[in-house]
């Protein structure tokens, strides 16, 4: 019985930990966007919706065949963007940008924005942190990217192999 109680307690403690990992996602990336469909959009900003809980940048991308498509790119909250130095008057309509992000799972012309690069080379992380998006290095609060983490682990392994020899 005592063991049973202990197991229950352990389970009860484990649940919030597991749930906590998921709950940190404000608006889960994986529910709407596909990490396997990264894309780069180039063109002018044609419309911006400074709305809660996500701002939307409409970007007129020129396709390879010369046709143009307007994409809706999801960004962080207006408050998040302001704290990264972007407010509603700092990106005038017509501003040329390069946006990299991930397409939506339903394959509509929507994307989750990661980095937005301006003509002067300045880059801004336009997304939200902690949404479960791929660790691609765009989010400065995230630390090492998956690739960097792999490199780090590989280096450590090589080190320990050397020690063994």
């Amino acid at each position: 019985m005592n063991n049973m109680k202990r197991a229950c307690l352990a389970a009860a403690c484990a649940v919030p930990v597991l749930v906590g990992v998921k709950a940190s996602a404000h608006h889960a990336f994986g529910a709407e966007f596909d990490p396997n469909r990264p894309l780069i959009l180039r063109g002018p900003v044609v419309k911006i919706e400074w709305t809660n809980p996500h701002a939307w940048f409409h970007i007129e991308h020129t396709n390879d065949d010369g046709t143009k498509t307007v994409w809706m790119v999801e960004a962080g909250t207006p408050n998040t963007l302001l704290r990264r130095g972007i407010h509603r008057n700092s990106v005038p309509i017509g501003t040329q940008v390069v946006v990299d992000g991930y397409q939506s799972k339903d394959l509509s012309k929507r994307a989750n924005g990661r980095n937005m690069t301006f003509a002067n080379g300045e880059t801004m992380f336009m997304g939200s942190s902690g949404t479960g998006a791929p660790r691609d290095g765009a989010d400065p609060t995230e630390g090492a990217t998956d690739q960097e983490q792999k490199n780090l682990e590989a280096a450590k392994e090589a080190e320990s192999d050397k020690e063994k020899e």
Partner: peptide, 12 residues
């Protein structure tokens, strides 16, 4: 309200 920096997050 929809575009607010602070009020909407506080309301939510």
């Amino acid at each position: 309200l929809h575009e607010s920096l602070w009020v909407w997050p506080l309301l939510e």
